[in-house]
Write a protein that binds this DNA or RNA. Sequence first.
DNA 1: CATCTGACAGACG
DNA 2: TCGTCTGCCAGAT
Length: 117
Amino acid sequence: MKPAPETPPEPRNFFQDVYEVVRLIPPGRVTSYGTIAHYLGSRRGARTVGYAMLAAHADDSVPAHRVLNRLGHLTGRLHFATPTAMQEALEAEGIKVEDDRVVDFDKLFWDPAVELG
DNA sequence: CATCTGACAGACG
DNA sequence: TCGTCTGCCAGAT
């Protein structure tokens, strides 16, 4: 048995975990920060998920444009290359966006806890 | 080394 | 019903 002086119960990389889940979001579908946080075990860690998305910019394989807040608003659109990049990326997948909000957000919602098991 | 901020969400008065 | 505060985690100053 190792003393594990600096090893928390589960040192899982939150960011890395977030990236994997986001990568699993199928085209034409969307999810929310809170849902991902909840799926990862941090119920109130939605904020950190948003922060992870910010860092995800360095990774093209992470479709950050499919992650919105719980209201279906494009909260992170200002963080993209251009203010309209996020909306255009969504529309390119067949998702309608009106007034910075995803239309039929409920129907397009993708819940990892349900879709993945 | 201490403090604040940030792409959120839920609880409380 | 609305406004305000706390919780979460990592990075920046």
